[in-house]
Amino acid sequence: MTYMQAYRAKEKALNMLRGGPTESYNKLPIYFNILEKAYPGSVVSLEKIVEDHFLYAFVALEPCIRGWEYCRPIVVIDGTHLKSTYEGTKLIASTLDLGGIILALAYAIVNSENDASWTWFFERFRNVFGERENMGNREQVRKLYVALVKAYTLQEFSELMGRLDIIDKKLGEYLFDSGYHKWSRIHATVKRTWTLTSNIAESINSSIAKAREFPVCKLMDYLRQLIETWNEKHSEEGRNTFTDLTNVYNEAYEDNKELSHYMYDCKCLRASTEFLHIVTDGMKRFSVCLRSRICSCGRFQLDEIPCGHALAAITYRHQHGEDYCSAYYNNKISKIHMPYQWNLFHARG
């Protein structure tokens, strides 16, 4: 038997046992009907788009709903990507019961982790479980922490920290003890712009997870092949990019450029000197110094990309915004790559 024969036989057997992916989605209404009869008091919800295609599904079983009444008001919410044919994301809300054992309160299948799906999930969770005094939500804390990490000014940082203290003062104390300079952009002792070191480390660890049990030589060669693949892929992306900035930073630049359009007129922009400008954004005024590449909003100097206020001043001076971006974002530099001799290595190996 060939490999493909074995593979097709396995897939056919699994489809016979589990059913096909499309058939499985079509059976969801029947499954939910049976679920409500088997667990009276349970809450299920199925959301479809106009074409009658699946969008969201929510389940909260009756025993879990009753159990929540006796649990501490702390909800842990997480999302996990699915690996089935149609992919999607599983959302699950859980807590600890009286015995300190994990109790899954509700779960859902959504298309992806986005604002619309999270809003839909939280609305149904609130309708089922209600609101309790001093209730903590890990997702809310996570969003606040991410906002704290990315804060551009001390005022913004202080306001967010105050909101976090309302949820739990111990969280603020923990972050203070760990050292703001280790994780906050505004408190960093070095200019690391958008670089999140923990994300890099976790991504690398995830990529080599399956190779950790390899013998040392096999592991070393696996790493070599992985680096080879990455370098070839990213070099090709650089060669196919024709903007002055690389793709990620060019998107941020274009977003800022859109914001600058309504600030570029005599009512919103005033030039104090050749380099210093006052830009009005809504009810606030911001100072921009093109020589020092600084804006009072904090974005220009920390992102090293002109913010909307800076771009309004740059346009007023008939200059190019790309000239004020960091050299590390320049696409010309990204196209320079080392002449790896992968084929020669294989030949010698």
Rank of each mutant, 00 (worst) to 15 (best):
S184H: 02
Q225E: 14
K218A: 11
C268F: 04
K191T: 02
L219P: 01
F242H: 07
D221K: 14
A211T: 07
L219C: 00
Y249F: 11
E228T: 14
E228G: 12
K191H: 11
V216T: 11
T193Q: 10
R270H: 04
D265M: 01
P215M: 01
T197I: 12
M263I: 02
I186M: 04
A252I: 09
N240Q: 12
Y249G: 01
M220F: 06
H181D: 04
A188P: 00
A188F: 06
T193K: 07
F214R: 10
A201H: 13
K218W: 00
N256S: 09
T241Y: 03
I208R: 07
K191D: 09
K191M: 05
Q225C: 09
D244Y: 08
A271G: 06
E202L: 11
M220S: 03
A201I: 15
T195N: 15
P215F: 01
L196V: 07
T189E: 06
M220Q: 10
L259V: 10
H187I: 05
T197G: 14
T273F: 03
D221M: 13
D221P: 03
K267C: 02
N205W: 09
Q225H: 12
M263E: 04
N247W: 15
S272T: 13
R212E: 01
D221N: 11
L196F: 07
T243W: 00
N205Q: 09
S203Y: 04
N256C: 05
Y222R: 06
A252E: 14
L219K: 04
L196N: 14
H234V: 15
Y249N: 03
C268L: 03
N247H: 12
H261E: 14
F214V: 03
I208T: 11
S184G: 02
T193C: 09
Y253H: 05
